[in-house]
Design a protein around this nucleic acid. Sequence first.
DNA 1: GTTTCGGTTCTTTTT
DNA 2: GAACCGAAAC
Length: 655
Amino acid sequence: MEDKKEQLDNFFKSELNKEQYEAVTSSDGPVLALAAAGTGKTRTLVYRVAYLVKKRGINPERILLLTFTNKAAQEMLERANNLIGTATGGWWGGTFHHLCNRILRRHSERIGYNTNYTILDREDSKRLINSCLKDRFSRNKHHLKADVIMDIYTQSINSNVSIDEVIEDKSKLHELDSETIKQVIEDYRQRKKKDNLMDFDDLLINGLELLKTFPDIRDLYGNKFLHILVDEYQDTNPLQSQLVDTLAAIHRNLLVVGDDFQSIYSWRGADFKNIMSFPERYPDARIIKLEINYRSVPEILAVANACITCNKNQFQKQLRPTRKQHRKPVIAFGPDGEWQAKFVVSVINEMLASGYKPSEIAVLYRAHFHSMELQLELTKVKLPYFVVSGPRFFEQAHIKDVMSIPRIISNPCDKTAFLRFIMLFGGIGERTAEKIWETLGGKFLINDDKYTSFVKEKLREDRNEWEKIITKISSLSHNLNNITEIGNLIDEFVRVFYDKYAVNTYEDAERRIDDIYELITYSRRFDTLDAFLSDTALMTNLDAETDPGDKKHTHSIRLSTIHQAKGLEWRAVIVLWLVEGMFPSSRSLEEGKDDEEERRLFYVAVTRAKDDLCLCVPYIREMKGGGIMFCRPSRFISEIPQDLAIIKRTRYSLY
DNA sequence: GTTTCGGTTCTTTTT
DNA sequence: GAACCGAAAC
């Protein structure tokens, strides 16, 4: 027995460096791990989980692992399971939204919500705000945009600031009618409550409210989670940190991991000072610094270190290399986007020829549209690539179209879904759809006579198709939560109606129909309709979330925004469009904001690379009107000392 | 009064 | 490409 324990100890010692070991094996109480890029942050978390279960005998159900994406949580728990040796279920891991959803599905009745509430994604929320706007100003012109209102609302919530303050802040730029905005936001709030809807922010607010107002619920979860681990702590917003503090109040076994250099979500309310004030909120916290970088060659780290010293408001620390000298990063100057695309293709070809696998190469950029030319070029030369969530899978029009059916089945008060569904049929537009909803009395009842005759009257050529769908839905009404039946229903809907609709509406109907079949297959992983709906609503992207063993992932070059590259690494990283106005983006510098977050973003891009880093700097940008614009190289390029990089000009080869 | 269609404008980052 | 707006077509 003693032997085994010692073996276990030695195992952890041999697998980790001194600081990692300290974090992994720390006894109870709060711990702050400041982990610079590539210093084994994930490794530390994974081993911590394994240590708690294996060495300390903690039941996995009593460990909560909060991460930035659901995928990250999945991966970590999988790796921990591998370490432990046996697959253990019952883990609680995922995003803050995920956690809140899980809690709310059990207790939301306490705050006046049915437990089968529907989650609104951004587009849904926007539509709902728009409809609130219309209700209030039916005829009168209103110059307000739903986008603006939502932005104000979200910011106020995520930064924990009053709506007035947000408006005042914005009013420095544009005059805003604060009374109207507040009215519309209030309408929006009430509509959500009445129709049993929650937007992303509501998940956090309501989750927190549940914990704050009901001591029994707070104690239930406070007691349950013996250990709480939080990844990417530098990107938590006030709401999220309150959630953590509330949940950790009883046991106080809290391990947070983060790096202020990599805080890139301030526009979502995140503030890296949150991580720095951790020791004030937890005076007994142990602070562990991880600075030894295992990922990148020294030449890349030199560029990263040079970059971040230009930020004044950071807590200076150095990345210490462990790897051998390799070669310097390349900065490539050339004419325009077309050149860049061709150059990148030639670089990739060179890398593939020298033995790199496609999956070891990533192309990163500031905004999705920066990769347009490259995508065309890659397609042309038939290099396999995949884009990490341009338009997100579940936010595409055709997916939302078919998803509207399960949504109204799950929550008959979901007006947005109902309108979307009924307006697919020719002859029914916004006006008619609203009237139909009124006839129904704000709730979808499949066999309501008044409503069926009304719809039939309005329908033009799709009457038969509509009847078939309705019959199918009502035949299902006893089996509502059965996911297989729902899959069959969508299948039938496509065959009877949507296939034809798609062909008439979209150029790429075939691809879209394929997507829908993929969706049906995907749905079969879930046990219930409700689980399917809430998981998909919280999911970013089907590609990013499906198993990494997928062919697409192992044989393709990855194209992604830097934001979505967070936490990942590749042998070779190519960064596009390093010119002023694109990166840093001109919008981020508006309103007198400083450029430090953009620089942190650049730092994140650089530190993703293990062996090779290539920064592209075209000097001509084609504008929308067809004109061109000359660009200055990004300040992040100018800030790199000349001797740290190899400068290339207008050539199609890397070395 | 409604629906549909065509033109215009904008695309930072995301749970 | 897709959301929004105004004008033609039903």
